[in-house]
Amino acid sequence: MARRPTGCPVTTDLKAEAGSVVQDRSTDLIGLAAALHADPETAWQEHRSCALVSGFLRDSGFAVIERYLGLDTAFHATFGTGAVRVGLCAEYDALPGLGHACGHNLISAMSVGAAIALARVAARLDLTVEVYGTPAEEGGGGKIELLDRGAFTGLDLAMMAHPAPVDIAEARPFAVSHSRVTFQGKAAHAAAYPEHGVNAADAFTIAEVAIGLLRQQLPPSVRVHGVVTRAGEAPNAIPERTEGRWYVRAETMAQLEETEQRVWRCFEAGAQATGCTLSIEPESKPYCDFRTDEGTLDLYRKNAKALGRTFATGDDAARMNRSSTDMANVSQVVPAIHPFIGIGSLPALNHQREFADHCVGPDADRAVLDGSTALAWTAIDRFAHQVPPALPKETP
């Protein structure tokens, strides 16, 4: 598809050059997305994925720090020495049992594509282009860990684009907490000595029933959901230990904290009724609600439309943009956008096996190239006012 950048002459020239980089490297970028898709790795285990993405950037002229800030599957790649710092976040963790059913393989390829496009014009925009390899978005809070260790500080803009069934410009994710819940009881022979057991499976049953009843009194801006990951060892033994993972989502951090207390009381009810002990431990710090840089998002909308993309409206637009992300925590610290880019997957939706199947193929390939280009063009529009026209080009 022909790229038709618009704007003032200087901006138009820069965008045309950045777009040509994406086209020239299209086979490589699509190949990167496909390779990640074929070898999914889950949170904190993304060793091959991290090496693949960071290696692509190193081969493209970026300086790469591996094991960034002490995290084994994080990296930081930079190009240029400009005063304006633009960061792109690459996610590459997959879902347990579902592979890349949220399309993080495409996120990495788009962020890398935008970065190498911006590297071509970095000197003329006074940019330092930075790519952050961010592990464990699916529940582990990799970006939060990086934030706590000093990453992202001082960025002028942070960006990424996330695959979805349709294009949606504005991310409005729920704040979310991720917790590991454990009930500890006492084992006994289920037929001969059942009265000597303390049933940890019953504790979870009571808690889940209580949560189901609580949902009647929860506002529509709240979600509570989870899975039991250990329910017992044998049908003829009273389960002595059960474990689960539970998420609580809400519109704001204040509402999240209030809702958590009500949910925890449901688990406490299970413990009290059965005599089990209860442990609730956070898997990461909570993901925040998102603070969008509206001016930059307007630029992204215009650039995506210039590439022929159409944004969804109505219910289609009100669904996927509510998914939670640790990119929201980054948005609380630096200006940020997190648009969703469609891959034509309907009726397949994120976190379904069928969606993973759509994260390779012609529509996914187009998303890689359009997302790379739209993000690069957005940064150019955002910072083109300071272009010093006499500076030489830099080629990654």
Rank of each mutant, 00 (worst) to 15 (best):
S331R: 03
C89R: 06
G113M: 14
F340Q: 11
E138M: 04
V166Y: 03
S331Q: 03
R382A: 07
L88C: 02
G270R: 11
T6I: 13
T78M: 11
L155S: 06
V227A: 14
K186L: 14
G371Y: 08
P5C: 11
A123I: 03
V166M: 03
V84Q: 08
T325I: 07
K305L: 13
E233Y: 06
V330P: 00
P96Y: 04
R245Q: 11
V53M: 07
P339A: 00
Y68H: 15
F290T: 00
G142M: 02
V131C: 06
P335I: 13
R85H: 09
I343W: 01
T42L: 13
L307S: 07
A119R: 05
S177D: 12
M160P: 00
A123T: 13
Y287I: 00
G7H: 12
A63V: 14
E257Y: 00
S323R: 09
L307K: 07
G113E: 13
T78S: 13
E195L: 11
G80N: 07
H196M: 08
V129E: 04
D363Y: 01
W264N: 15
D370N: 09
G212T: 12
C266A: 15
G141K: 06
R120E: 09
N236A: 11
R249G: 10
D381V: 09
A203D: 12
L375S: 05
F183R: 04
W44K: 02
F62M: 13
F204E: 06
Y193F: 14
F56E: 14
T292N: 10
R241Q: 13
R180C: 15
Y247D: 13
S49R: 03
E243W: 06
Q184G: 13
